[in-house]
Simulated scan of single mutants.
Amino acid sequence: MSSKPKTAELSGKNDGFWHNVFKHHAYLVLALPAVLVLFFFNYVPMAGLVLAFKSYDYTKGIWFSPWNGIDNFKFLIQSKNDFIRITRNTLLYYVVFTALGQFLNVVLAIAIDQFAFKRVGKTMQTIMIIPVFVSYAAVQFIVMAYLSSGTGIINNMLGGKIPFYRSAEYWPYILTIVKIWNGVGYGSVLYMSVLAGIDTSLYEAASIDGASKWQQIKHVTLPSLIPMITVMLLLSVGGIMHSDTGLFYQVTRNTGILYETTQVIDSYVLNAIMKNSNFGFTAATTFFQSIVGLLLMLLANGTVKKIAPENSLF
């Protein structure tokens, strides 16, 4: 007697699952291309990580090249000066770009949202998005037009006294300006989408209570943006060891004399591929980046989950 209800219950669960699959088959079909792209372009290439533990031989290919254990990782760490320099540069640029970028994204989004002339605000928003579509291959020539020793606009204004492409100390500022110019406009749009969803009755209630514009921003706008800010920071932590290769490799024109302040892990790897074609070493370097990024993201997400569980990624 008791087994029949259990069987029926299990059968009902199975029917319910396949019924839901059939019911939502249109959504599954729409999601399938994205899932396939993610699988083939993000997960299948991960098989190439075996190169990090091999001494790559062109004649034998990836799978038949001899194993060398962790020798590639040892070589990375033993090149002490290079390893310390590129790791330091990568982390410092990440902190500066993330902190300054997030701050300016939020400020710009709030400024445009509060702008009295909405049509002008939308025009400004469109103009600010344009730089993100400009390739760094083109940006390097824009930067050269300002900084080159012979014809640079800024250099001519300064009497040609500063050889920017031979002076490493100026490039942290130059790269920060270029990065902010390139990314802040697009980043602010993401926050503006959140601002557009804030219930206007909250502002009305605050205004009735006598709150000024600054108080409304402080007590209504900023708290509404905190979940989005947290998610963006958590996502960025995963790429803490990665940098924009185009920015550091192309804009600097891969000038060796600037490496002290401009070379990061990604540009170091690309340079190694171009010069030495040591794919085992480069695979070990990128594997190191990914593991560190994953661990830091898990740590950051766990911290957020303890403090504000509703803002965590998972």
Rank of each mutant, 00 (worst) to 15 (best):
M157L: 02
D82Q: 12
G239I: 04
S224V: 03
K13H: 05
Y56E: 09
T151N: 03
K213D: 12
I226E: 01
G187Y: 03
M128P: 02
F164H: 05
I240Y: 03
Y56S: 13
V107A: 14
N72C: 02
L30R: 08
K4L: 10
Y146E: 08
F41E: 08
G101E: 13
T90K: 11
A52K: 00
L10M: 04
S243E: 06
A137D: 12
A116N: 14
V134G: 10
T282Q: 07
L108V: 14
S207G: 12
W63H: 08
F40T: 03
N89H: 03
P33E: 06
L28Y: 08
F97H: 10
F75G: 05
L195Y: 05
Q140V: 07
V120D: 14
S193K: 06
M192Y: 05
A145Q: 13
T261K: 11
S65E: 10
S224K: 05
L294T: 06
I129M: 08
R88D: 03
Y249C: 07
Y93L: 10
I154Y: 03
F141H: 05
L190P: 15
E310I: 09
V231F: 05
Q250R: 00
S148L: 03
Q215Y: 07
S193W: 14
F83I: 07
Y186K: 08
N271R: 11
V139Q: 13
D15R: 09
Q263T: 02
W214P: 15
F115K: 12
A145K: 15
Y165I: 02
P223L: 00
Y249L: 03
V178G: 06
A308W: 04
G239Q: 04
M124C: 12
Q289H: 00
A111H: 04
V220L: 07
S149W: 01
G12Q: 10
Y136F: 07
F83A: 10
N105D: 02
A52T: 02
